[in-house]
Design a protein around this nucleic acid. Structure first.
Length: 499
RNA sequence: GGCCCUAUCGUCUAGUGGACCAGGACUCAGCCCUUUCAAGGCUGCGACAGGGGUUCGAAUCCCCUUAGGGCUACCA
């Protein structure tokens, strides 16, 4: 543990509710949470909805649901309240107006009457704002006010010197102060811009560490200048590397993209619905820009909390390795207790089968099937495709390609004979248990001098309709003796029909 | 264009001047195991962007080049 983690940190995740939460945002929230928990501090959720034009009401619910799914619980926030409520910026507008007025009174900010059109003109000529209203005489200002022109409040940034912000990952970042060209603090609609709101709120909410995307680095000097202007101590800045597109080229887009023929979604809810386990996603994301120790990539939440340091985060942008996500999700699925996996699988399988969950929860077949597919699926949503044969009647197993019923190195006649003898065994074994079935079938295969794999192939296809299935004797047991016999009979008929 | 950030296997990463002819993971290939498919085990392919310094010694520090990325709004 380093000196940086001795003090309990107050860390906030401050998304703007303009759309669905994406993986980059979730990673930021995860790091926020990890650091708050590591230091025994607080994790705070704050909603930055100062852009009323882009506000999307659905995004709020999506956001909270996504955070809860990953297990990121917040100590203060819009729904749970806290000592610095409200936690929604649109409900704090008077606060920002007050601080903007204070800045004006101090001569550190001023009202600017430049219209959008005038600004557009400057931009068209490649020029920044020319500070035209920074030093208005009282008479000039009165005249503009009298015209009823809408005004914004701009920061009167210092005109010389350099400004340095300290980034916990990158060290000092220094820029020429004159490059900060009097940014707008208060918009003409009375709401603050991000810059004012973030500084005021981070100070008022006693935030100690600001973790945010590196796209904020360019405006960090402005924020430093604002903290200075207010006479406040700035928090520690931690600019997280951006997450790149899976192709590795460019920032991850906010739409689905296709790479190597596979579709990738940036949205968290697509992974929730796609059958990824929150534990796996947590573990996966924790490896994006941070690493546990260079050797282990699988670790628990507790282990990550114990070890997480903001100064260990890499400054390098990363492309999400989705192949590794799948692998890791598979690892977590295999680690699951069968009973828990069963519970997690029910919604997916019920949906896949098109039946009600209530019809499935008690179904003995699924209970038996879960351990069989546990090491064969990487995401929950793949389960149905592996076991749907167990939930249909014998007649629904058709053999469109009867040649599949022919085992490797066997003729159609031999396969038919295998099926016949297997049906006989199936009908006679007692008790109808996996080990008994296996012993009987093995003995028979040996007697007929057929490799077990080839011997079992016709039976596998007969029972499941496919050449690939969960282990055979267990599958037979799931179906039961009578159902197994029906399917073998049908298969033999299908094979004879082409034979 | 301007300002800023970054640079180790295809990808995610370890590495903070000597223990590195660079370690782990995913992917891929081969072999083993095997009841198909998986899972598991073993082996292999595979990187310090380039050039200058500093130093007895550099992946590690400095500079330049190159490449990628971000920002450049009364959006966040």
């Amino acid at each position: 543990m380093t000196a940086a983690s001795i003090r309990p940190a107050r860390v906030r995740f401050a998304p703007s509710p303009t759309g669905f939460l994406h993986l980059g945002g979730l990673r930021t929230a995860l790091f926020d949470w990890l650091y708050a928990r590591h230091t025994g501090g607080q994790f705070i959720l704050r909603i930055e909805d100062t852009d009323q034009k882009r506000f999307n009401p659905a995004s709020l619910e999506n956001l909270m649901r996504s955070l809860r799914w990953l297990g990121l619980d917040w100590d203060e926030g819009p729904d749970v309240g806290g000592p610095h409520a409200p936690y929604t910026q649109s409900e704090r507008r008077e606060l920002y107006q007050h601080y903007a007025s204070w800045l004006i009174a101090q001569g550190k900010a001023y009202r600017c009457y430049t219209s959008e059109a005038e600004l557009e003109e400057l931009r068209a000529r490649g020029l920044p704002y020319d500070r035209r209203h920074r030093n208005l005489t009282p008479a000039e200002q009165a005249a503009l006010e009298a015209e009823g022109r809408p005004a914004v409040v701009r920061f009167a940034a210092p005109l010389s010197g350099t400004t340095t912000v300290h980034d916990a990952i990158r060290g000092p970042i220094t820029v020429e102060t004159h490059s900060v060209v009097d940014p707008v603090l208060l918009k003409s609609d009375g709401l603050p811009t991000y810059h004012l709101a973030v500084v005021v709120d981070d100070h008022l909410m006693e935030i100690t560490h600001v973790l945010r995307g590196e796209e904020w680095i360019p405006s960090a000097p402005l924020h430093q200048l604002l903290f200075d202007a207010f006479g406040w101590e700035a928090p520690i800045f931690v600019h997280l590397p951006v997450i790149l597109d899976p192709s590795g080229k460019g920032k991850m887009s906010k739409r689905k993209t296709v790479v190597d023929g596979r579709e990738f979604s940036p949205f968290v809810h697509d992974y929730m619905e796609g059958g990824y386990l929150p534990d796996a996603m947590f573990n996966f994301l924790a490896n994006m820009g941070w690493s546990y120790d260079g050797e282990r990539e699988i670790f628990t939440r507790e282990e990550a909390v114990a070890r997480f340091e903001v100064t260990d985060i890499s400054p390098k942008a990363t492309a999400l390795p989705f192949g590794k996500l799948d692998w890791m999700n598979g690892v977590y699925i295999r680690q699951r207790a069968p009973a828990q996996l069963h519970a997690e699988l029910v919604p997916y399988v019920a949906a896949g089968l098109g039946i009600e969950e209530s019809q499935l929860v008690q179904d003995r077949r699924l209970v038996e099937l879960v351990p069989l597919i546990q090491e064969r699926i990487k995401v929950l949503s793949e389960a149905t495709a592996l076991i749907d044969w167990a939930f249909v009647s014998a007649d629904q197993i058709t053999y469109p390609d009867p040649s599949l019923l022919i085992g490797k190195k066997l003729t159609a006649a031999e396969s038919l004979a295998v099926l016949a003898v297997c049906a006989e065994l199936t009908g006679s074994v007692d008790p109808f248990e996996v080990s008994v079935l296996e012993a009987a079938f093995r003995g028979q295969a040996e007697q007929m001098a057929i490799k077990l794999g080839s011997f079992l192939a016709p039976v596998r296809v007969a029972l499941t309709g496919r050449a690939v299935s969960p282990p055979l004797f267990e599958s037979m047991h799931v179906l039961g003796r009578e159902e197994s016999l029906r399917r073998m009979a049908n298969a033999m008929a299908a094979l004879r029909a082409v034979g």
